[in-house]
Nucleic acid binder design. Structure first.
Length: 888
DNA sequence: TATTCGCGGGG
DNA sequence: GTGTACGCGAATA
């Protein structure tokens, strides 16, 4: 017997002699992988029915499944306080037979925990967690089913070790060739020609190896030539086995490289032995996309991580853009994807360079940017295995809660079988958003105060949990939510959710404290990832209670949380306004914006702290209203859309910046000019408070546009051709341009998948037909349609900003020295809204004379899209006489 | 205004 | 494998 210590990487099982044998893959401190084998654990679930029925039920089930075992245990139901029941534990042998047995059992009562994955069933019962350390007693075992040292173990338990074992990372990228011109390559026909691999740490002193499927006499020790695609794939499998990575990385690997590799191996009849056990890599087609599992390894897709990270906002998420933004590095330019075939035949070195760089970039993103740090921590905090942490948040909470329920003898419900849309009649009522005082506020600082993690704090304060829900009249102290739902007080029984949150929030506090006491950058990075993971988990638990497919979905609980939230924020608003010479001009969910009559930063800071202290003292439980920052000027357009010039104290210095919420400056369908101009204008309005100057900036841009002084690059809009050109139904500018370009240069041949950048040029044709290639525009000296750029690109996002500052669109455009501009707009017949420019100040909405519908802005043809009736201007509810303008 | 639809990344 | 996405803009009624 020996003591084994390792970090938990993966768990699976195999059937041996009709019993499951668990295989627990762990990483030792020195980086060596071991596999622990455990055969003393069987699958089971619970059935709840009146106790007197259990003997009959057993007999009935045994008739069909004679090998099952039973126990009757005392348990608590998950929903409702103190609901004791006798539950029938049904113990099976083969985990994969459980769904079938459940089907039968469901005839006799309600099943619990009948859809917990076997590996998680085991982990929850043993209180094990993904990426946490375990200690086991075992002796060496021999098996040919696993590719690392194995031990047969008798016991296993979690132990506390902070550090992480060193992991091995392999990044890969494949290249294919196809004859098809209008689709992606097809693994049943089109070969893989290159597999490029990048290692971290190095493999046999190499950072990189590139495999190719033919011999062309390249002399390079990092290139391995093969006689055929089959041989190349076999070599690939050998390298995986030999290097034995823990993490496999690739850009969009989940939805391209992995599914392609696996399907290709299937097509060519190559055993897909990529994992640490004798089990083929497993590919599953989902509704949309794929999921691949490889025993003992984790597949990591930087594309998915980056796209889902709210802090990483880019215009596009292709590897080139992301690498440029995050690494200041780029892909190798081979002049379009259809060049691959040409390079494969004529310039293989260039192609190898290209493939090599792609794998390298994907690896760099993960390693240099520490993208996995947070996920290691999330795995530890939620208990999920690392490979499952990239899915949704609901699974993270589910396992965490299950582990707690196991400790407290509470049954976990099965996932609700999702019926139709309306599971219940009442809906989730959301948070409160105060009606904002629209416009520019710059005559008195605005203080922003936030409830620190509002929903988690509410759950803790009022002991909100399915397990504390008071369903019957009992003589115990309770909290009653504003919608009349009762939860027993923590003095009676602390809820599971409040306890989980307490743990999450208190460890976050501790981690942040620890961060203040360290300067080691490596440690700081890990600690920051940890506190972020803790914050994520705490903040998303509320969402889980209101998620209709949650195992613990109770609408009245989710509604109680938001109701408490509304109550507390309203209470705070009134308290602040009653006790201080201020006015709350806006608030959303967990924040209030307090307008003061002072402009001094230090004085504002003092007042902010005073308000925070005063309100927090009056708030119940762990609720706290924190003073967050000061806005020297604040521009609010509508609910959830504002910009401000913020000041935050950092030590004894003030840090200032422009913050924006709900106001976008980057959008796929906008050219660069739009964002640039917007930022510029907002800066001037907020910092200088000079609206006239801002308006002048706008007019200058308009003027420069008309005079052709704006660089073409700032006017380009880029869109992709996603399918063959004739399969597009409507007319879209980039599609029309692609057609044109093809006509001019038939050698382009395949344009599908290409990104087309276009500008709109002057002319009388339909807008879409006037899309043109910027290069062509330069070469032929064509004139861009400045009117289009003003009306369709600049004006829509910017006019609202000026409008709330009291500048009408008329004024905005009139001051322009380019008098003809207005004329131009008036005459332009394609856009009726342009014709209204002159009269904008005379109406506040556009109403249909037929159905009375109030439109936000005039429609293109001047007719109501609901009933086809004529539109008319309306001011203060009165329909204007100037209908003629529309009809002209 | 509500609701559905389709797409992203990759070769 | 006792399972499986999501969020958003555009189009449509």
């Amino acid at each position: 017997m020996q003591k084994l210590i390792g970090q938990l990487l993966d768990v699976d099982y195999m059937m041996v002699n009709n019993k499951p044998l668990l295989r627990i893959f762990c990483k030792q401190k020195d980086g060596k992988t071991i596999c622990l084998l455990y055969n003393k654990y069987l699958p089971y679930f619970y059935l709840v029915s009146p106790e007197e029925n259990y003997e009959d039920i057993k007999k009935n089930i045994l008739k069909v499944y004679p090998n099952l075992k039973f126990e009757i245990l005392e348990k608590f139901l998950p929903i409702g306080y103190n609901k004791k029941v006798k539950a029938l534990k049904i113990i099976g042998n083969d985990p994969s037979k459980i769904p079938e047995i459940r089907g039968l059992a469901e005839k006799f009562g309600t099943c619990y925990e009948a859809d917990i994955l076997f590996k998680y069933r085991f982990m929850a019962d043993m209180q094990l967690r993904g990426m946490e350390w375990i200690e086991a007693d075992g002796k060496p075992a021999k098996t040919n089913t696993v590719n690392c040292d194995c031990f047969e173990i008798n016991s296993i338990k979690k132990i506390d070790i902070q550090e992480n074992a060193p992991l091995k990372y392999l990044s890969l990228d494949i290249e294919c060739i196809t004859d098809a011109t209008d689709r992606m390559p097809d693994p049943s026909k089109d070969p893989i020609i290159i597999i490029s691999l990048c290692f971290y740490p190095e493999y046999k002193n190499k950072k990189q190896i590139i495999l190719i499927s033919k011999r062309s006499g390249i002399k390079n020790e990092n290139i391995i030539e093969n006689d055929s695609e089959e041989k190349m794939l076999e070599e690939f499998i050998n390298i995986i086995k030999d290097y034995d990575p823990d993490i496999i990385i690739g850009y969009n690997i989940n939805n391209f490289d992995m599914p392609y590799l696996i399907q290709r191996m299937e097509t060519l009849n190559i055993p897909r032995m990529l994992g640490r056990a004798n089990k083929a890599a497993f590919l599953k087609k989902l509704q949309q996309g794929y999921s691949t599992s490889i025993i003992g390894r984790v597949i990591v897709d930087p594309y998915e991580i980056i796209r889902r990270d709210p802090w990483l906002k880019f215009k596009r998420y292709d590897l080139n853009t992301v690498a440029k933004e995050m690494l200041n590095d780029t892909k190798i330019d081979i002049g379009g994807i259809r060049e691959i075939k040409h390079l494969w035949e004529n310039d293989i070195n260039k192609l190898l360079e290209y493939a090599g760089k792609d794998a390298e970039l994907a690896l760099k993103l993960i390693i240099q940017k520490g993208l996995l740090d947070k996920f290691f921590e999330l795995s530890k905090i939620s208990g999920l295995l690392l490979q499952d942490i990239f899915g949704g948040q609901s699974q993270r909470h589910e396992f965490n809660i299950l582990s707690e329920f196991v400790k407290e003898n509470i049954l976990m419900p099965c996932k609700p079988t999702l019926k139709r849309k309306s599971l219940s009649e009442d809906e989730l009522k959301g948070a409160i958003v105060f009606e904002p005082e629209i416009g520019l506020h710059n005559n008195g600082n605005i203080l922003v105060l936030d409830f620190t993690s509002l929903y988690p704090s509410l759950i803790r304060t009022y002991n909100i949990c399915p397990t504390t829900l008071l369903l019957t009249d009992e003589n115990v102290p309770f909290y009653e939510s504003p919608i009349g739902v009762k939860f027993v007080k923590e003095t009676v029984k602390e809820g599971v959710l409040p306890r989980i949150l307490k743990k999450l929030m208190e460890s976050r506090k501790a981690v942040r404290q620890q961060m203040k006491n360290t300067t080691d950058p490596e440690l700081l990075r890990i600690l920051d990832a940890k506190q972020l993971a803790l914050k994520d988990m705490a903040n998303s638990l509320y969402g889980y209670t209101g998620y209709s497919r949650s195992r613990l979905f109770v609408m009245s609980i989710a509604n109680s949380i938001t109701a408490y939230g509304r109550e507390n924020i309203k209470f705070s608003k009134e308290l602040v306004e009653k006790n201080f010479p201020v006015k709350v001009i806006y608030g959303d969910t967990d924040s209030i914006f307090v307008k003061t009559n002072i402009t001094d930063l230090e004085a504002s800071n003092e007042l902010g702290n005073k308000i925070s202290e005063f309100v927090s003292e009056s708030l119940p439980g762990v609720l706290e209203l924190k003073f967050e920052k000061i806005f020297k000027s604040f521009l609010i357009l509508s609910k959830k859309r504002y910009a401000g010039w913020s000041f935050e104290k950092d030590g004894d210095k003030w840090k200032e910046k422009i913050v924006m919420k709900g106001i976008e400056t980057v959008r796929r369908d906008w050219c660069e000019l739009v964002g640039k101009t917007m930022k510029n204008i907002l800066k001037i309005i907020l910092k200088d408070g000079d609206i006239k100057k801002a308006a002048k900036i706008f007019r200058d841009v308009a003027k420069d546009l008309a005079e052709g002084k704006i660089p073409l690059e700032d006017l380009v809009v880029i869109k992709s051709i996603t399918k063959s050109l004739d399969s597009y139904d409507g007319v879209q500018p980039h599609v029309e341009l692609a057609k044109k370009m093809l006509e001019r240069n038939p050698a382009l041949e395949n344009i599908v998948g290409e990104r087309i950048g276009y500008v709109i040029i002057k002319g009388t044709a339909l807008l879409s037909k006037r899309a043109e290639d910027p290069k062509y525009v330069k070469e032929h000296g064509l004139e861009i349609d400045s009117n289009y750029y003003i009306q369709n690109q600049l004006l829509p996002p910017i006019e609202r900003i000026f409008e709330v500052c009291g500048v009408t669109t008329t004024e905005l455009l009139e001051g322009s020295k380019q008098k003809s501009l207005i004329e131009l707009i008036k005459k332009s017949s394609s856009k009726s809204e342009s014709k209204n420019i002159e009269f904008l100040e005379n109406f506040d909405s556009v109403v249909c004379r037929g159905c009375g519908w109030s439109h936000h802005r005039p429609t293109l043809n001047g007719k109501c899209y609901l009933c086809g009736g004529q539109l008319a201007f309306s001011f203060n509810g009165n329909i204007s006489d100037k209908i003629k303008i529309l009809e002209n």
